[in-house]
Amino acid sequence: MKFVDEAIIKVHAGDGGNGCISFRREKFIPFGGPDGGDGGHGGSVWLVADEGLNTLIDFRHQRSFKAQRGQNGMGSDMYGKGGEDTDIRVPIGTVVTNVDTDEVIGDLTVHGQRLLVAQGGKGGLGNIHFKSSVNRAPRKSTPGTPGDVRELKLELKLLADVGLLGFPNAGKSTFIRAVSAATPRVADYPFTTLHPNLGVVSLGTDQSFVIADIPGLIEGAAEGHGLGIQFLRHVSRTRLLLHLVDIAPIDGTDVVEQVRAIEHELQKFDAELLDRPRWLVLNKADVLPEDERQAVAEDIVARLGWTQPWFLVSAIARDNTMNVCQHIQRFFESQREAHEGRTDMSPGDVRLRGEASRD
C-alpha cells in the first residue's frame, strides 16, 4: 500500500559535552590558574513541515534520528563546539504525539513550520568557573547533561477544504478527475484508491478550493475494518463533506442503507462530523434512463429525509459536476463573508437543494 499516514519514530537529541579540567602551563608560569573550557551544547531534533511531501512512507525505512553530541571543553579556555541540530521533514498536516505520555506535542500546518521535539543537552562547565579566593586550583568540572530521548507518533491529516465520502467504488476518484487536474487511479473494483488524492478545483481568478478523494469506507471502519481509521481521520479537517453514492448499485443494495451505514461510521468515529456541512451527491446517473433519473433521486432524498443540498451527477460523463463545484465555491464565499460580518448574501445562496441539481 503506497499510502502511509502513521509512523512511530525515536528521536535522540545530542548530549552536552563535558567541561574540562585544565591549568595554564606556560614557560615561566609553572602554577598558572585554571583554563578548562565548557562543553558544547548538544544538537536538538526538529520536525519541519514540507509541502513537497504527502506521505509518511519514508519513515518505514528510517525510524531513529539522532542529533550531534556537543564537543567536550578543552584547555586554554577553549569551549567545545555545539552539536548540529537534526531536521526531520514531514508533510504539512502532521500531528505529533509523545507515545509515552499520549500528549500532543504539536501540529504542523504551514510550510516551513518548525517544531522542537527533542532538546539538546547543556554543555558542562570547565574548572575555570570554580576558581575562588580559597580555591585557586579547582579540580572540578561538570559533565554535559543528556539530550532528550522521545518516541513519537506521527499522524498525517490532510488539509483540504472538501472531503469526498462514500463506499468503495462510489465514483469518488472519477469525480475528482472530472473537476480538477488530479489523476487518481480509476477502476471498476473496490479500494482502487489506497491513498488520499488532493485536487485543486479552479473556477477563475481567486476562486479555488482543495478537494480530497478519501479512500472508500466499509462498515466497521471506525473499529479499523478495511482501511478504517487510517482514512476516517482525514475528514476531520475538511470544511465540507461531499457524500457520494452510486444511485443504482449493481448488487441491488439500497442507497438509503448505504448512506445510513456511512453516517453510522462517522458517528462512531467522531459525532461532531455529523454536524459538519455534508452534501449528498447521487452519482452514476448515466446508468438510468434519462426520464427516470430525477424521480429516482427525489425518492432517495425523500426516504432519507435529507435537509442539506443534494445533486444528481454523472462523474464519468462530467454531467453537472461543475455545477456542484460552483455551489461549493459560493458556500465558501458566504462563509467568509459571514466571518467578516457581512450580511449581503441571502441564505438561499447557501442552502440550495434539489432544484440546484437541475441547473
Rank of each mutant, 00 (worst) to 15 (best):
K122P: 00
G123S: 01
G123D: 00
G124T: 05
N127W: 07
I128R: 14
H129S: 09
K131M: 01
S132T: 12
S132K: 02
N135G: 01
R136S: 13
P138A: 02
R139Q: 14
T142N: 04
T142Y: 04
G144P: 06
P146M: 09
P146C: 06
K153W: 06
L154P: 14
E155C: 15
L156I: 15
L158A: 14
L158W: 09
A160T: 13
L164M: 08
L164T: 03
L164K: 05
N169A: 10
N169G: 05
A170M: 11
S173T: 11
T174F: 04
T174S: 15
T174R: 05
R177A: 09
R177K: 15
V179I: 12
V179K: 00
A182M: 13
T183E: 15
T183W: 03
R185V: 12
D188P: 07
P190M: 02
F191R: 04
T193V: 03
L194F: 08
L194Y: 04
H195I: 00
P196L: 04
L198T: 14
V200L: 13
V200I: 12
V200K: 12
T205M: 08
D206L: 02
S208W: 03
S208D: 02
V210K: 13
D213S: 08
D213P: 09
I214M: 06
P215F: 12
G216S: 05
I218A: 01
E219G: 02
E219A: 08
H225A: 09
H225P: 00
G226C: 07
